[in-house]
C-alpha cells in the first residue's frame, strides 16, 4: 500500500520551511494567546458566578483545569512526535519532541501547584496520595526523565532516540491519569470537562473555562515554536540557509 500525503505534509519535515512559516505564524499566535487569556482570566476570576459550596476558591479551576489538560496533551504530542521521528527518521519531529518537554514539565508543575492550593481549603489537605494526584506526579517525573535524556549523549541522534523511547513507554500513564478517578476510590472528583458529555456546570461557568483551555493551547504552540526555532538553528547551523540568515542579519 502506498500512502499519498499532500505536499504541505512533506514540507513539515523541512527545517527551513518550518523556520519561515513559524516566523509568520508567531505574531498571530501571540495575539490570539493574549486576547483569549485576557478575556478568559477576567471573565473567570471576576465575572463568573461563585460556586454554591466552595465560594470564590472554586475560581482556581480556570488555571488548574487548563494546565492539567495541556500537561497531558503536551505529553501525547511529545510521544507522537518521538514515534514519527523514530519510524520515519524525520529530524524535525525530534526537534518538536525535545522542545515540547520543558514546556510540558512547567505546565505539569502549574497543575500540581494549583491543585495543592485548591486542595487545602476545599479538601483540607495540600496533598493526598490518591491515584489521580500520584499519576499526575509521575507525569511530571516522566517529563524530567525525557528532558534529561534529550541531552544525555554527545550524539544528538542517540539522545533523540533515547528520549523518544522513554516518552513512548510513558504514554501508558496518560489513560491512567484520565481514568484514575473512575477505576479507584480517590479524593479527586471526576472530570468536569469531557468531549462526550455536557459540562457539569452552567454556561456562564464553562464558557470562560473553555476560553482558558484554548488560550493555554495557543500559548503552548507559541512557546513550542519559539523553542523549536532555536533548536532548529542550532542543529542546522552548517546548512546554507542558516549561514545566509546569519550573513543577512549580522
Amino acid at each position: 500500500m502506498k500512502l499519498k500525503f499532500p505536499r504541505w505534509f512533506y514540507r513539515l519535515a523541512s527545517p527551513k520551511w518550518f523556520y519561515e512559516i513559524s516566523s509568520k505564524l508567531m505574531p498571530w499566535l501571540a495575539l490570539v494567546t493574549t486576547v483569549l487569556m485576557t478575556i478568559g482570566l477576567i471573565w473567570g476570576l471576576v465575572f463568573a458566578p461563585e460556586d454554591y459550596q466552595q465560594g470564590n476558591s472554586f475560581r482556581i479551576i480556570y488555571i488548574h483545569v487548563p494546565a492539567a489538560i495541556l500537561a497531558q496533551s503536551c505529553y501525547l504530542f511529545m510521544a507522537s512526535a518521538g514515534a514519527i521521528g523514530l519510524i520515519w527518521k524525520i529530524k524535525m519531529a525530534h526537534v518538536m519532541a525535545k522542545s515540547a518537554a520543558p514546556i510540558g514539565a512547567s505546565i505539569a508543575v502549574l497543575a500540581l501547584a494549583t491543585g495543592a492550593i485548591w486542595g487545602k481549603p476545599t479538601w483540607g489537605a495540600w496533598w493526598v496520595w490518591d491515584a489521580r494526584l500520584t499519576s499526575m506526579l509521575v507525569l511530571f517525573f516522566l517529563y524530567l526523565g525525557v528532558i534529561a535524556l534529550t541531552s544525555a549523549f554527545d550524539n544528538v541522534a542517540s539522545s533523540d532516540k533515547a528520549a523518544a523511547v522513554l516518552s513512548l513507554v510513558g504514554v501508558v500513564n496518560i489513560p491512567i491519569i484520565k481514568y484514575s478517578v473512575e477505576w479507584w476510590n480517590t479524593l479527586h472528583q471526576p472530570a468536569t470537562f469531557t468531549i462526550t458529555a455536557k459540562p457539569a456546570m452552567p454556561a456562564e461557568m464553562w464558557i470562560p473555562l473553555l476560553i482558558m483551555v484554548l488560550s493555554f493551547y495557543s500559548f503552548f504552540a507559541l512557546m513550542l515554536f519559539a523553542r523549536a526555532r532555536i533548536e532548529t538553528l542550532q542543529r542546522e547551523k552548517r546548512a546554507d540557509w542558516v549561514q545566509d540568515l546569519i550573513k543577512n542579519h549580522p
Partner: peptide, 8 residues
C-alpha cells in the same frame, strides 16, 4: 466534593 459546580 463532586464535579458539579453551580452558582448559589
Amino acid at each position: 466534593h463532586d464535579e458539579n459546580y453551580m452558582p448559589p
